[in-house]
Design a protein around this nucleic acid. Structure first.
Lengths: 231, 231
DNA sequence: CGGATCATTGACTGGTGTCAACTTAGGTGG
DNA sequence: CCACCTAAGTTGACACCAGTCAATGATCCG
């Protein structure tokens, strides 16, 4: 049981489609969980038992091949919904990329509640469609782009996210990476060495600066955009 | 205006979540369209104006890079829903892979109708979630699998689809490919030559036989499964 | 039968992955 | 406060998978 009225994502998560009364009902079987970086919320191929909202931090969805190579399937930020409602099992793991807080529900309970709330289901639908669009562009990235294009696209995505949080429209921006090189490689379907080399190449060409290992200053956005398109 | 009562996908498409009356209402602004192989129903980045059901044939969703390389993002078969409701624009093209028939709606009209039908929206949600799961496994395929693993996975997918249509559980199966080598390459994020070489390699190893260019007999499923896992 | 399209095969190349050494950063304890 | 230790990142050498270019072979239709 959680105090939803004070929840930082009350107006951002799926809860925003519910009245105060309904949020209170949903909150009755919600559970606030703090996750340490690296904690696994849901294992790949395990029966899907939990769904929930990300309150703070970043989670990643990932899948691991039999040979151990990992592919990140998506990220979930503040306000995002994670888990697979209305289905018996989840096809991927959910892992905390940073320390995080989530508000979880048992899937069965959430499902039956959701079925009584058309507005909530509509919100879930919109989110699923958006995720689908995003995931599909990622297909393009993984299937057809070169290492250089992947990195450029990734950086511009980060810039976009920073812009959404108030960074300037143009001119140099400094972005804080939510993860290390290995995680970037896992997202882009490449290796840590290739990521490192590509970043070095961009620095040498004066397109970016790297004041810290997880901090990148974008000096020339236009050049990055060109790099996403062709070599 | 279409006669929905006689529609072959009345109980398969999203319409299955509607009463006869409501289907009739929806049908009033539906339009039956025959598509020649190759016809583009929706251009990439164009304003999303249409959504619809696939009645017959196969459509593909695809995206083209600036250098012309294409990536197939998904297929839509009989009974599947295509298009992007509740959003201003579509991020990808929809093209008829075979001759096809679709039942289309103007997006704006469909959207407002759907908002009055919770069952319909729930169905759309389930479909979107399933698509999302499928698309995410495809990420794994594109990001982390070798050419050999890609082909093996593709063939097993085809076998699975054949099985769903009544093919035997085990033993040799002959599958009819819905497309040529180039299309396969576009799905798997590789080239026509690589597809061709991999298929030849499988034939040489006695795992498959190719009685026709679009027909493949699977002799040893177990071997294919092993190939998807490791080299 | 003939032309067009599609598939196969070969030779070659280049981009990335792999393996390994080295450097840097960050945190802990003396 | 510095020294050390570990984890993370960088760089280099090399190999190999898969892409490219090009020629040949099959198949489909008119």
């Amino acid at each position: 049981m959680t105090d939803c009225a004070q929840c930082p994502v009350r107006d951002q998560a799926i809860c925003s489609s519910l009245s105060d009364d309904d949020v209170a009902r949903l909150g009755q079987f919600g559970r606030l969980q703090r996750l340490r970086r690296g904690t696994v919320l849901q294992w790949e191929d395990e029966e899907s038992l939990l769904v929930g909202n990300v309150i703070e931090g970043v989670l990643k969805l990932s899948s691991t091949a039999s040979d151990g190579r990992e592919q990140t399937l998506g990220l979930a930020h503040q306000g995002d919904f994670v888990g697979r409602p209305f289905g018996p099992k989840s096809a991927h793991s959910v892992v905390a990329l940073t320390d995080a807080q989530v508000c979880t529900f048992r899937r069965a309970e959430f499902d039956s509640f959701a079925r009584t709330q058309p507005e909530l289901e509509h919100d879930l639908l919109e989110r699923a469609l958006t995720d689908l669009d995003r995931t599909r562009s990622w297909l393009m990235l993984l299937g057809r782009k070169t290492a250089g294009q992947k990195i450029a696209t990734f950086l511009l995505d980060m810039v976009e996210r920073a812009r959404a949080s108030g960074a300037p429209e143009c001119g140099p921006v400094t972005i804080e990476l939510p993860c290390g090189r290995q995680e970037i490689a896992d997202m882009l379907g490449t290796t840590i060495e290739t990521v490192s080399r590509q970043i070095t190449a961009l620095r040498n060409r004066g397109i970016i600066e790297t004041p810290g290992t997880r901090r990148i200053m974008i000096l020339d956005r236009e050049a990055l955009v060109l790099l996403t398109e062709a070599e």
